[in-house]
């Protein structure tokens, strides 16, 4: 090859590699789709921190938001905590139930977490981890949106925001019962 051609060929040789690497950003190897979408949400009955029973079956006909969290989940669960309470206050009178499920945690720090953020929506520990297994919870926080027919419609991995809460809940509320 002539020197002139080499002058161009040497730097250009690295371009395909860089393009391939850039292509890598289009994909996310960690995104795990949940097979539960469109399927009936599996029923559970738990005892809340305040001693009252919580049963998913009893909430049929309402839009249910299921939030899995833990007190050690820094920072995501702390980031989303205010949004949860805001969502609860905004939608509790419109037929939406927000349930917090505390997994892999100890009681005392969990209660401290609830007190720190003044959470008033029902919250229950999942002492045997059955509910989190049924829902295929991979890490905390994860939030499931269940429609009035009891079907899982959306799963949020990672912290929830006011926007996502509003968008998903409004969508499910707009559907006929």
């Amino acid at each position: 090859m002539s020197t002139r051609a080499l002058r161009w060929a040497i730097p250009l040789a690295v371009v395909p590699v860089l393009v391939l690497l850039a292509y890598g950003f289009r994909t996310d190897p960690h995104a795990i789709p949940t097979p539960l979408l469109g399927k009936p949400a599996s029923p559970f009955t738990l005892t809340a921190f305040d001693g009252k029973p919580i049963s998913l079956e009893a909430l049929r006909g309402k839009v249910v938001v299921l939030n899995f969290w833990a007190s050690w989940c820094v920072p995501a669960c702390y980031d989303e905590a205010p949004s949860l309470e805001r969502g609860w206050q905004a939608y509790r009178d419109r037929g939406v139930v927000l349930i917090g499920i505390n997994i892999q945690d100890k009681e005392e720090p969990a209660r401290r977490f609830l007190a720190q953020f003044n959470h008033t929506f029902p919250n229950a520990p999942d002492p045997l981890g059955r509910v989190s297994v049924d829902y295929g919870v991979y890490g905390v926080p994860e939030t499931f949106f269940i429609d009035r027919k009891g079907q899982v419609r959306f799963k949020q991995i990672g912290a929830i925001t006011d926007e996502i809460m509003k968008q998903q809940v409004e969508k499910l509320l707009a559907e006929p019962a």
Binding site: T3, L6, R7, W8, A9, I10, P11, A13, V14, V15, L18
Partner: peptide, 15 residues
Amino acid sequence: SLVMLGAFSLLAWRL
């Protein structure tokens, strides 16, 4: 990209 393109261009320049 800057490092590889820059360094190899220099190399080509000094061929």
